[in-house]
Design a protein around this nucleic acid. Sequence first.
RNA 1: GCCCCGUUCGUCUAGAGGCCUAGGACGCCAGAUUCUCAAUCUGGUAACACGGGUUCAAAUCCCGUACGGGGUGCCA
Length: 447
Amino acid sequence: MTTCVRFAPSPTGYLHVGGARTALFNWLFARSTGGRFLLRVEDTDTERNRDELTDVILDLLGWLGIEADGEPVFQSDNRSRHREVVEQLLRDGKAYLCDNENNEVVGAELVEGLAVRFRVASYEQETLNICDVVRGEVSFAAAEMEDFVLWRSNATPTFLLANAVDDIDMGITHAIRGEDLLPSTPKAMLVMDAMGAVAPTYAHLPLLVNEQRKKLSKRKDDVSLEIWRGRGYLPEAMANYLATLGWGPPDDIEIRPMAEILELFRLEDVLKSPAFFDPKKLEHFNATHIRRLSSEEFLARLEPWFEEAAWPAQRYRTEVMDALGPMVQEKIRTLAEAERFVDWLMLDDPPVDVASWEKAIAGNAVARDILSEALVVYADTPWQADNLYEATKTLGEQHGLKLGKAQAPIRVAITGRSVGPPLFESLVLLSREEAMRRLQMAINKLD
RNA sequence: GCCCCGUUCGUCUAGAGGCCUAGGACGCCAGAUUCUCAAUCUGGUAACACGGGUUCAAAUCCCGUACGGGGUGCCA
């Protein structure tokens, strides 16, 4: 049997990291079983702009490397089919008309202004058993279920109806979704059974939770995938991290290419308990993925970031990144951090980090002497990294300081920060005149 | 309330009765190293929720308790 799964986002306007994880697991399952991965936009709420919504979702899924098979299906396009199923259920007595107070209204045809509820009593078995790949067999007693609305009085299908009908019509073999949908699964199965259809196999994924162990909330948590992309996270790092939430590779190697995860992933290995979305660990994954990029690829990924950087576009100096790229690559954790490693080479007056200034210069008794002497020494040191290194080292030794200490005030005076790329290589790129101008400015500021 | 699900280091996980005095990763702590460190390396810290069974043997199987979560809409 060829497997067929779907990711069915609801129209909230953006992609949630939990939704992205669900999409990823569906995609992994489809690709690893040679099946199909479809996209269905559950836009039964017709007020949204669906083109725009779909663009956001497709864009983000594409960013993550999750490609759907075929064009996305809009649930709202299946309205007539949904209506047809409701009408049939009504005729079969498996559903009934009801008014706003949920009182049954006699009739076997749809009536404008009246809703339709499913009649659970029409189901003849005592229990509904869900065959769940993750949770095993889960059963619900039919006697404890209440009738539920299939068709609203405003003539639109509810999630329960549309979701069930579309899964059947699309030939979905495995419904892989969040655990929050587990309690509604027996209702979907009731509808499918009444349609004379066979329900798909289910797999309810453990929820992603926040530090309070609650389902990720749009209000309190950073759940939008766009936010993470905007913070400089690599799609491969995000997808890789998401794959380790609720699932773990058997060989304990967590950070790896998606192609390898595809080979190792098995739906039945997915865990049952909720997982905390840990930004710190995500950051570590990201830093590692950044370092694994080739130098060329790293620079290419940085391009969109530098286009929005604080320096004027015409001030960008290609030679700076050609020389410092690899050194920046091994230090940053997110792409967003790259800018402050090199901005002082593109700006006339780079910002000065207050804490760095206090520690290395204002609060450092020898800082003034070091800066003044550096001004003198740099005036006639050959402007090359090796020579600057030696000159600065000697300067420090005259104060009984190791190079590490001696370079601190110089670094802050010139770059504005205590952290950055290797100083002497960078000074060469800055030019002697500019370096000396900044040293003088720092001394003036101190006076 | 009722229904359903879950419970291994702070966190993500490995573990399918003996390989477990429980492994890896993040974090944290310490040390090393580099011209800076937010990089790198090394080491350390820390868990089978509890109580009963079953068994020669249980983190692994069964039952119960506790705790946590999800659901209980003419939301999805």
